[in-house]
Design a protein around this nucleic acid. Structure first.
Lengths: 192, 192
DNA sequence: TCTCCTTTACTACGGATGTAGTGGACATTA
DNA sequence: TAATGTCCACTACATCCGTAGTAAAGGAGA
Protein backbone atom coordinates (compact mmCIF):
# COMPACT_ATOMS: atom_id res chain seq x y z
CA UNK A 1 0.00 0.00 0.00
CA UNK A 2 1.31 3.39 -0.94
CA UNK A 3 1.23 5.06 2.45
CA UNK A 4 0.30 4.25 5.99
CA UNK A 5 -2.60 6.58 5.69
CA UNK A 6 -3.93 4.85 2.61
CA UNK A 7 -3.77 1.58 4.48
CA UNK A 8 -5.76 2.96 7.39
CA UNK A 9 -8.37 4.38 5.06
CA UNK A 10 -8.69 1.11 3.14
CA UNK A 11 -8.94 -0.99 6.27
CA UNK A 12 -11.62 1.29 7.65
CA UNK A 13 -13.48 1.10 4.36
CA UNK A 14 -13.45 -2.70 4.55
CA UNK A 15 -14.88 -2.64 8.04
CA UNK A 16 -17.53 -0.14 7.01
CA UNK A 17 -18.47 -2.22 4.01
CA UNK A 18 -18.92 -5.30 6.17
CA UNK A 19 -20.87 -3.52 8.88
CA UNK A 20 -23.03 -1.11 6.92
CA UNK A 21 -22.89 -2.22 3.30
CA UNK A 22 -22.36 -0.22 0.13
CA UNK A 23 -24.58 2.57 1.25
CA UNK A 24 -22.64 2.90 4.46
CA UNK A 25 -19.33 3.42 2.72
CA UNK A 26 -18.84 7.14 2.11
CA UNK A 27 -15.85 9.41 2.23
CA UNK A 28 -17.14 11.11 5.33
CA UNK A 29 -17.97 7.87 7.12
CA UNK A 30 -14.42 6.66 6.62
CA UNK A 31 -13.00 9.88 8.04
CA UNK A 32 -15.19 9.55 11.09
CA UNK A 33 -14.65 5.84 11.70
CA UNK A 34 -10.90 6.16 11.25
CA UNK A 35 -10.68 9.21 13.47
CA UNK A 36 -9.25 11.29 10.67
CA UNK A 37 -10.04 14.95 10.15
CA UNK A 38 -12.95 15.50 7.79
CA UNK A 39 -11.96 15.56 4.15
CA UNK A 40 -8.98 13.27 4.52
CA UNK A 41 -10.51 10.33 2.69
CA UNK A 42 -11.97 12.54 0.01
CA UNK A 43 -8.53 13.94 -0.48
CA UNK A 44 -6.76 10.61 -0.68
CA UNK A 45 -9.30 9.02 -3.00
CA UNK A 46 -10.94 11.82 -4.93
CA UNK A 47 -13.75 9.90 -6.55
CA UNK A 48 -15.90 7.12 -5.25
CA UNK A 49 -14.44 4.82 -7.84
CA UNK A 50 -10.95 5.55 -6.55
CA UNK A 51 -12.06 4.74 -3.02
CA UNK A 52 -13.52 1.41 -4.12
CA UNK A 53 -10.41 0.52 -6.07
CA UNK A 54 -8.22 1.31 -3.12
CA UNK A 55 -10.41 -0.81 -0.88
CA UNK A 56 -10.51 -3.83 -3.16
CA UNK A 57 -6.76 -3.66 -3.77
CA UNK A 58 -6.17 -3.68 -0.03
CA UNK A 59 -8.64 -6.51 0.46
CA UNK A 60 -6.97 -8.79 -2.05
CA UNK A 61 -3.65 -7.97 -0.44
CA UNK A 62 -5.00 -8.98 2.96
CA UNK A 63 -6.49 -12.19 1.66
CA UNK A 64 -3.28 -13.11 -0.11
CA UNK A 65 -1.48 -12.66 3.17
CA UNK A 66 -3.97 -14.97 4.86
CA UNK A 67 -3.67 -17.67 2.26
CA UNK A 68 0.04 -17.49 1.57
CA UNK A 69 0.99 -19.87 4.40
CA UNK A 70 -1.76 -22.26 3.32
CA UNK A 71 -0.75 -22.27 -0.33
CA UNK A 72 2.84 -23.06 0.52
CA UNK A 73 2.71 -26.58 1.78
CA UNK A 74 4.53 -29.88 1.25
CA UNK A 75 3.23 -31.33 -2.00
CA UNK A 76 3.43 -34.99 -1.10
CA UNK A 77 0.02 -36.61 -1.43
CA UNK A 78 -1.40 -34.37 -4.12
CA UNK A 79 -5.12 -34.73 -3.66
CA UNK A 80 -4.92 -34.94 0.10
CA UNK A 81 -2.97 -31.72 0.17
CA UNK A 82 -5.46 -30.02 -2.10
CA UNK A 83 -8.30 -31.10 0.16
CA UNK A 84 -6.61 -29.95 3.31
CA UNK A 85 -5.55 -26.66 1.70
CA UNK A 86 -9.09 -25.93 0.68
CA UNK A 87 -10.51 -26.87 4.05
CA UNK A 88 -8.04 -24.61 5.79
CA UNK A 89 -8.76 -21.75 3.45
CA UNK A 90 -12.50 -22.08 4.02
CA UNK A 91 -12.01 -22.33 7.73
CA UNK A 92 -10.01 -19.13 7.70
CA UNK A 93 -12.81 -17.32 5.90
CA UNK A 94 -15.37 -18.63 8.35
CA UNK A 95 -13.45 -17.53 11.41
CA UNK A 96 -10.93 -14.71 11.24
CA UNK A 97 -11.92 -13.64 7.74
CA UNK A 98 -15.67 -13.28 8.14
CA UNK A 99 -15.87 -9.54 7.81
CA UNK A 100 -13.41 -9.57 4.94
CA UNK A 101 -15.66 -12.09 3.25
CA UNK A 102 -18.68 -9.84 3.59
CA UNK A 103 -16.74 -6.87 2.24
CA UNK A 104 -15.52 -9.04 -0.59
CA UNK A 105 -19.06 -9.95 -1.59
CA UNK A 106 -20.11 -6.33 -1.50
CA UNK A 107 -17.28 -5.46 -3.83
CA UNK A 108 -17.93 -8.45 -6.06
CA UNK A 109 -21.48 -7.28 -6.61
CA UNK A 110 -20.21 -3.82 -7.36
CA UNK A 111 -17.64 -5.22 -9.76
CA UNK A 112 -20.58 -6.40 -11.85
CA UNK A 113 -21.06 -2.77 -12.79
CA UNK A 114 -17.52 -1.38 -12.56
CA UNK A 115 -14.92 -2.75 -14.96
CA UNK A 116 -12.06 -1.20 -13.01
CA UNK A 117 -13.00 -3.36 -10.03
CA UNK A 118 -13.60 -6.45 -12.10
CA UNK A 119 -10.03 -6.38 -13.32
CA UNK A 120 -8.63 -6.48 -9.80
CA UNK A 121 -11.12 -9.13 -8.75
CA UNK A 122 -10.35 -11.42 -11.66
CA UNK A 123 -6.63 -11.24 -11.19
CA UNK A 124 -7.01 -12.29 -7.58
CA UNK A 125 -9.34 -15.15 -8.44
CA UNK A 126 -6.83 -16.74 -10.77
CA UNK A 127 -4.37 -17.10 -7.93
CA UNK A 128 -6.60 -19.81 -6.42
CA UNK A 129 -7.98 -21.42 -9.50
CA UNK A 130 -4.67 -21.99 -11.21
CA UNK A 131 -2.94 -24.07 -8.54
CA UNK A 132 -6.11 -26.12 -8.10
CA UNK A 133 -6.25 -26.85 -11.80
CA UNK A 134 -2.60 -27.86 -11.78
CA UNK A 135 -3.03 -30.28 -8.91
CA UNK A 136 -6.22 -31.76 -10.34
CA UNK A 137 -4.51 -32.26 -13.64
CA UNK A 138 -1.59 -34.03 -11.99
CA UNK A 139 -4.01 -36.15 -10.01
CA UNK A 140 -5.55 -37.49 -13.17
CA UNK A 141 -8.69 -35.44 -13.40
CA UNK A 142 -10.59 -36.04 -16.60
CA UNK A 143 -11.45 -32.34 -16.89
CA UNK A 144 -9.13 -30.27 -14.74
CA UNK A 145 -10.40 -26.85 -15.78
CA UNK A 146 -14.03 -27.60 -15.10
CA UNK A 147 -13.11 -29.37 -11.88
CA UNK A 148 -11.01 -26.44 -10.79
CA UNK A 149 -13.87 -24.07 -11.31
CA UNK A 150 -16.08 -26.49 -9.48
CA UNK A 151 -13.91 -26.50 -6.40
CA UNK A 152 -13.81 -22.74 -6.36
CA UNK A 153 -17.58 -22.55 -6.83
CA UNK A 154 -18.14 -25.06 -4.08
CA UNK A 155 -15.89 -23.11 -1.75
CA UNK A 156 -17.55 -19.83 -2.56
CA UNK A 157 -20.93 -21.39 -1.93
CA UNK A 158 -19.96 -22.81 1.42
CA UNK A 159 -18.63 -19.47 2.57
CA UNK A 160 -21.58 -17.55 1.24
CA UNK A 161 -24.07 -19.90 2.80
CA UNK A 162 -22.40 -19.76 6.18
CA UNK A 163 -21.54 -16.07 6.33
CA UNK A 164 -24.42 -14.48 4.43
CA UNK A 165 -27.03 -17.21 4.41
CA UNK A 166 -28.76 -19.38 6.90
CA UNK A 167 -26.16 -19.45 9.65
CA UNK A 168 -25.02 -22.61 11.46
CA UNK A 169 -21.37 -22.76 10.43
CA UNK A 170 -19.87 -26.08 9.48
CA UNK A 171 -17.04 -27.35 11.63
CA UNK A 172 -13.56 -27.81 10.26
CA UNK A 173 -14.26 -31.52 10.04
CA UNK A 174 -17.47 -30.87 8.17
CA UNK A 175 -15.42 -28.92 5.67
CA UNK A 176 -12.87 -31.72 5.33
CA UNK A 177 -15.65 -34.22 4.79
CA UNK A 178 -17.46 -32.12 2.24
CA UNK A 179 -14.41 -31.35 0.15
CA UNK A 180 -13.35 -34.96 0.32
CA UNK A 181 -16.70 -36.04 -1.00
CA UNK A 182 -16.55 -33.56 -3.86
CA UNK A 183 -13.03 -34.60 -4.81
CA UNK A 184 -13.87 -38.26 -4.63
CA UNK A 185 -16.87 -37.64 -6.86
CA UNK A 186 -14.75 -35.80 -9.38
CA UNK A 187 -11.79 -38.14 -9.47
CA UNK A 188 -13.51 -41.47 -9.25
CA UNK A 189 -13.11 -43.68 -6.15
CA UNK A 190 -9.79 -42.15 -5.21
CA UNK A 191 -8.27 -41.60 -1.83
CA UNK A 192 -8.58 -37.98 -0.46
CA UNK B 1 -49.02 -9.10 -4.08
CA UNK B 2 -51.45 -6.65 -2.59
CA UNK B 3 -52.11 -4.48 -5.61
CA UNK B 4 -51.07 -4.23 -9.20
CA UNK B 5 -49.21 -1.08 -8.36
CA UNK B 6 -47.24 -2.72 -5.59
CA UNK B 7 -46.25 -5.43 -8.04
CA UNK B 8 -45.01 -2.89 -10.57
CA UNK B 9 -43.03 -1.06 -7.92
CA UNK B 10 -41.46 -4.26 -6.63
CA UNK B 11 -40.57 -5.52 -10.10
CA UNK B 12 -38.97 -2.22 -10.93
CA UNK B 13 -37.05 -2.29 -7.68
CA UNK B 14 -35.68 -5.72 -8.56
CA UNK B 15 -34.51 -4.51 -11.95
CA UNK B 16 -32.93 -1.45 -10.37
CA UNK B 17 -31.18 -3.54 -7.78
CA UNK B 18 -29.71 -5.79 -10.43
CA UNK B 19 -28.65 -2.95 -12.72
CA UNK B 20 -27.47 -0.31 -10.28
CA UNK B 21 -27.04 -2.03 -6.92
CA UNK B 22 -28.16 -0.98 -3.48
CA UNK B 23 -27.15 2.59 -4.01
CA UNK B 24 -29.22 2.76 -7.15
CA UNK B 25 -32.42 1.69 -5.44
CA UNK B 26 -34.20 4.80 -4.20
CA UNK B 27 -37.82 5.79 -4.00
CA UNK B 28 -37.39 8.38 -6.69
CA UNK B 29 -35.46 6.05 -8.98
CA UNK B 30 -38.30 3.54 -8.84
CA UNK B 31 -40.84 6.22 -9.70
CA UNK B 32 -38.81 7.26 -12.68
CA UNK B 33 -37.97 3.79 -13.97
CA UNK B 34 -41.54 2.61 -13.59
CA UNK B 35 -42.95 5.70 -15.23
CA UNK B 36 -44.96 6.59 -12.15
CA UNK B 37 -45.56 10.13 -10.96
CA UNK B 38 -42.95 11.28 -8.45
CA UNK B 39 -43.77 10.31 -4.90
CA UNK B 40 -45.70 7.16 -5.77
CA UNK B 41 -43.15 4.73 -4.43
CA UNK B 42 -42.53 6.80 -1.36
CA UNK B 43 -46.24 6.73 -0.77
CA UNK B 44 -46.62 3.00 -1.21
CA UNK B 45 -43.58 2.05 0.86
CA UNK B 46 -43.01 4.87 3.32
CA UNK B 47 -39.64 3.84 4.64
CA UNK B 48 -36.67 2.31 2.93
CA UNK B 49 -37.07 -0.78 5.01
CA UNK B 50 -40.63 -1.16 3.76
CA UNK B 51 -39.43 -0.86 0.19
CA UNK B 52 -36.82 -3.55 0.71
CA UNK B 53 -39.31 -5.87 2.36
CA UNK B 54 -41.74 -5.42 -0.48
CA UNK B 55 -38.99 -6.13 -2.98
CA UNK B 56 -37.71 -9.26 -1.30
CA UNK B 57 -41.22 -10.60 -0.82
CA UNK B 58 -41.90 -10.17 -4.51
CA UNK B 59 -38.59 -11.72 -5.43
CA UNK B 60 -39.21 -14.89 -3.43
CA UNK B 61 -42.64 -15.08 -5.00
CA UNK B 62 -41.14 -14.85 -8.48
CA UNK B 63 -38.50 -17.46 -7.74
CA UNK B 64 -41.08 -19.82 -6.32
CA UNK B 65 -43.03 -19.48 -9.52
CA UNK B 66 -39.92 -20.31 -11.53
CA UNK B 67 -39.10 -23.38 -9.50
CA UNK B 68 -42.57 -24.72 -8.93
CA UNK B 69 -42.66 -26.71 -12.18
CA UNK B 70 -39.19 -28.06 -11.47
CA UNK B 71 -40.00 -29.14 -7.93
CA UNK B 72 -43.07 -31.04 -9.06
CA UNK B 73 -41.67 -33.94 -10.97
CA UNK B 74 -42.11 -37.72 -11.18
CA UNK B 75 -40.26 -39.17 -8.18
CA UNK B 76 -39.13 -42.41 -9.78
CA UNK B 77 -35.36 -42.67 -9.62
CA UNK B 78 -34.77 -40.63 -6.48
CA UNK B 79 -31.20 -39.48 -6.88
CA UNK B 80 -31.45 -39.02 -10.61
CA UNK B 81 -34.45 -36.79 -10.14
CA UNK B 82 -32.68 -34.75 -7.50
CA UNK B 83 -29.74 -34.27 -9.82
CA UNK B 84 -31.86 -33.25 -12.76
CA UNK B 85 -34.00 -30.97 -10.60
CA UNK B 86 -30.95 -29.19 -9.32
CA UNK B 87 -29.41 -28.90 -12.76
CA UNK B 88 -32.62 -27.41 -14.13
CA UNK B 89 -32.91 -24.98 -11.25
CA UNK B 90 -29.34 -23.80 -11.74
CA UNK B 91 -29.84 -23.52 -15.44
CA UNK B 92 -32.88 -21.35 -14.88
CA UNK B 93 -30.90 -19.01 -12.66
CA UNK B 94 -28.13 -18.79 -15.21
CA UNK B 95 -30.43 -17.92 -18.08
CA UNK B 96 -33.81 -16.34 -17.48
CA UNK B 97 -33.15 -15.65 -13.80
CA UNK B 98 -29.83 -13.86 -14.01
CA UNK B 99 -31.01 -10.43 -12.96
CA UNK B 100 -33.17 -11.91 -10.24
CA UNK B 101 -30.09 -13.69 -8.97
CA UNK B 102 -28.13 -10.46 -8.77
CA UNK B 103 -30.98 -8.74 -6.95
CA UNK B 104 -31.22 -11.70 -4.62
CA UNK B 105 -27.57 -11.40 -3.70
CA UNK B 106 -27.92 -7.69 -3.07
CA UNK B 107 -30.79 -8.37 -0.73
CA UNK B 108 -29.01 -11.27 0.94
CA UNK B 109 -26.11 -9.00 1.81
CA UNK B 110 -28.54 -6.44 3.14
CA UNK B 111 -30.32 -9.12 5.16
CA UNK B 112 -27.09 -9.50 7.10
CA UNK B 113 -27.93 -6.21 8.71
CA UNK B 114 -31.74 -6.19 8.61
CA UNK B 115 -33.57 -8.83 10.63
CA UNK B 116 -36.87 -8.13 8.90
CA UNK B 117 -35.30 -9.19 5.60
CA UNK B 118 -33.52 -12.16 7.09
CA UNK B 119 -36.82 -13.65 8.18
CA UNK B 120 -38.23 -13.61 4.64
CA UNK B 121 -34.97 -14.90 3.20
CA UNK B 122 -34.70 -17.82 5.61
CA UNK B 123 -38.24 -18.94 5.05
CA UNK B 124 -37.64 -19.08 1.32
CA UNK B 125 -34.38 -20.98 1.69
CA UNK B 126 -36.01 -23.80 3.57
CA UNK B 127 -38.25 -24.50 0.62
CA UNK B 128 -35.26 -25.85 -1.28
CA UNK B 129 -33.27 -27.39 1.48
CA UNK B 130 -36.08 -29.48 2.92
CA UNK B 131 -37.00 -31.49 -0.16
CA UNK B 132 -33.33 -32.10 -0.87
CA UNK B 133 -32.78 -33.44 2.64
CA UNK B 134 -35.81 -35.69 2.29
CA UNK B 135 -34.60 -37.20 -0.97
CA UNK B 136 -31.04 -37.62 0.26
CA UNK B 137 -32.33 -39.35 3.35
CA UNK B 138 -34.44 -41.71 1.30
CA UNK B 139 -31.46 -42.37 -0.98
CA UNK B 140 -29.44 -43.61 1.93
CA UNK B 141 -27.27 -40.61 2.67
CA UNK B 142 -25.18 -41.07 5.78
CA UNK B 143 -25.73 -37.46 6.81
CA UNK B 144 -28.73 -36.01 4.99
CA UNK B 145 -28.78 -32.64 6.71
CA UNK B 146 -25.17 -31.86 6.04
CA UNK B 147 -25.47 -33.19 2.52
CA UNK B 148 -28.56 -31.11 1.92
CA UNK B 149 -26.75 -27.98 2.98
CA UNK B 150 -23.89 -29.01 0.81
CA UNK B 151 -26.00 -29.25 -2.29
CA UNK B 152 -27.49 -25.87 -1.61
CA UNK B 153 -24.06 -24.39 -0.98
CA UNK B 154 -22.71 -25.94 -4.15
CA UNK B 155 -25.61 -24.57 -6.14
CA UNK B 156 -25.26 -21.13 -4.66
CA UNK B 157 -21.57 -21.17 -5.45
CA UNK B 158 -22.06 -22.20 -9.04
CA UNK B 159 -24.57 -19.43 -9.59
CA UNK B 160 -22.49 -16.84 -7.81
CA UNK B 161 -19.38 -17.76 -9.68
CA UNK B 162 -21.10 -17.62 -13.03
CA UNK B 163 -23.27 -14.55 -12.51
CA UNK B 164 -21.12 -12.40 -10.25
CA UNK B 165 -17.69 -13.92 -10.63
CA UNK B 166 -15.35 -14.77 -13.42
CA UNK B 167 -17.82 -15.30 -16.24
CA UNK B 168 -17.80 -18.24 -18.67
CA UNK B 169 -21.09 -19.91 -17.81
CA UNK B 170 -21.21 -23.67 -17.59
CA UNK B 171 -23.44 -25.46 -20.06
CA UNK B 172 -26.46 -27.43 -18.92
CA UNK B 173 -24.43 -30.58 -19.39
CA UNK B 174 -21.61 -29.16 -17.29
CA UNK B 175 -24.15 -28.63 -14.55
CA UNK B 176 -25.47 -32.17 -14.85
CA UNK B 177 -21.94 -33.52 -14.68
CA UNK B 178 -20.94 -31.44 -11.71
CA UNK B 179 -23.97 -32.26 -9.63
CA UNK B 180 -23.64 -35.90 -10.53
CA UNK B 181 -20.08 -35.87 -9.29
CA UNK B 182 -21.02 -34.21 -6.04
CA UNK B 183 -23.87 -36.64 -5.43
CA UNK B 184 -21.71 -39.63 -6.28
CA UNK B 185 -19.11 -38.39 -3.86
CA UNK B 186 -21.66 -37.98 -1.10
CA UNK B 187 -23.53 -41.22 -1.60
CA UNK B 188 -20.71 -43.60 -2.39
CA UNK B 189 -20.35 -45.11 -5.87
CA UNK B 190 -24.04 -44.79 -6.61
CA UNK B 191 -25.75 -44.14 -9.88
CA UNK B 192 -26.88 -40.53 -10.46
C1' DT C 1 18.92 28.39 5.43
C1' DC C 2 15.99 28.80 1.56
C1' DT C 3 13.18 26.62 -1.95
C1' DC C 4 10.25 23.33 -3.99
C1' DC C 5 6.99 19.66 -3.85
C1' DT C 6 4.11 16.38 -1.69
C1' DT C 7 0.75 15.56 1.81
C1' DT C 8 -2.87 17.17 4.79
C1' DA C 9 -6.69 20.10 6.62
C1' DC C 10 -10.57 22.67 5.77
C1' DT C 11 -14.45 24.65 3.32
C1' DA C 12 -17.94 25.09 -0.42
C1' DC C 13 -21.58 23.63 -3.48
C1' DG C 14 -24.83 21.47 -6.39
C1' DG C 15 -27.52 17.72 -6.19
C1' DA C 16 -29.76 13.58 -4.37
C1' DT C 17 -32.15 11.05 -0.54
C1' DG C 18 -35.44 9.43 3.08
C1' DT C 19 -39.46 10.70 5.10
C1' DA C 20 -43.67 13.17 6.10
C1' DG C 21 -47.89 16.05 5.30
C1' DT C 22 -51.88 17.49 2.74
C1' DG C 23 -55.49 17.88 -0.41
C1' DG C 24 -58.01 15.87 -4.11
C1' DA C 25 -59.82 11.94 -7.06
C1' DC C 26 -62.22 7.90 -7.01
C1' DA C 27 -65.09 4.18 -5.97
C1' DT C 28 -68.07 1.75 -2.79
C1' DT C 29 -71.84 1.44 0.24
C1' DA C 30 -75.88 3.06 2.45
C1' DT D 1 -77.56 11.06 -3.88
C1' DA D 2 -74.73 11.57 0.14
C1' DA D 3 -71.27 9.88 3.05
C1' DT D 4 -67.02 7.54 3.74
C1' DG D 5 -62.78 5.56 3.35
C1' DT D 6 -58.86 4.32 0.33
C1' DC D 7 -55.55 5.43 -2.98
C1' DC D 8 -52.82 8.75 -5.36
C1' DA D 9 -50.30 13.17 -6.85
C1' DC D 10 -47.67 16.65 -5.28
C1' DT D 11 -44.80 19.37 -2.30
C1' DA D 12 -41.63 20.40 1.60
C1' DC D 13 -37.62 19.79 4.39
C1' DA D 14 -33.64 18.46 6.77
C1' DT D 15 -29.83 15.68 5.94
C1' DC D 16 -26.26 13.60 3.55
C1' DC D 17 -23.37 12.72 -0.62
C1' DG D 18 -19.58 13.12 -4.13
C1' DT D 19 -16.44 16.14 -5.73
C1' DA D 20 -13.47 20.07 -6.09
C1' DG D 21 -10.65 24.07 -4.73
C1' DT D 22 -7.36 26.18 -1.78
C1' DA D 23 -4.29 27.13 1.70
C1' DA D 24 -1.29 25.53 5.33
C1' DA D 25 2.16 22.21 6.92
C1' DG D 26 6.01 19.41 6.54
C1' DG D 27 10.02 17.27 4.59
C1' DA D 28 13.76 16.76 0.93
C1' DG D 29 17.30 18.64 -1.55
C1' DA D 30 20.30 22.53 -2.70
Amino acid sequence: MKSQRAELVADTAIALLADRGMRGLTHRAVDEAAGLPPGSTSNLARTRSALLELTLARLTQLESATFAPILESPAADLVGVLAEMTAQALWAQLTVGRRQAVARYELALEATRRPELRRIYDRAGARFRDPAVAILSAAGSSDPVRHGRQIVAFSEGVIFDAVIGAGADPTLDDLRLGIGELLRGMLGREDA
